[in-house]
Amino acid sequence: MTPTYYLVLSGVLFTIGTIGVLVRRNAIVVFMCIELMLNAVNLTLVTFSRINGGLDGQIMAFFVMVVAAAEVVVGLAIITSIFRTRRSASVDDSNLLKY
């Protein structure tokens, strides 16, 4: 059980999340990918907490969860309001602001 494997896993999860944000078109899916990135961070924090032998990392993971929950509230409100207006949650359709 080498803790380093978990760091690699969290790096992979973070990368998958990043790629998801960049290539997916549905705002909800983009948002879920951001949540995946945050959870990858949680795994990193807990793993480092184990490697370094302190509890700080685990406490920080709780903070991250709380903030992520608050972000969901705000994010879904915004995405819902734009979906009600346009009948679509695609980020490609929001293209009035440019140049």
Binding site: V21, A27, V30, F31, I34, M37, E71, V74, G75, I78, I79, S81, I82, T85, V91, S94, L96, L97
Partner: peptide, 13 residues
């Protein structure tokens, strides 16, 4: 609303 969505997604990213 479009500004809010863009700001939110990029800001969270």
């Amino acid at each position: 609303q479009e500004a809010a969505v863009k700001y939110f997604l990029l800001g969270a990213f």
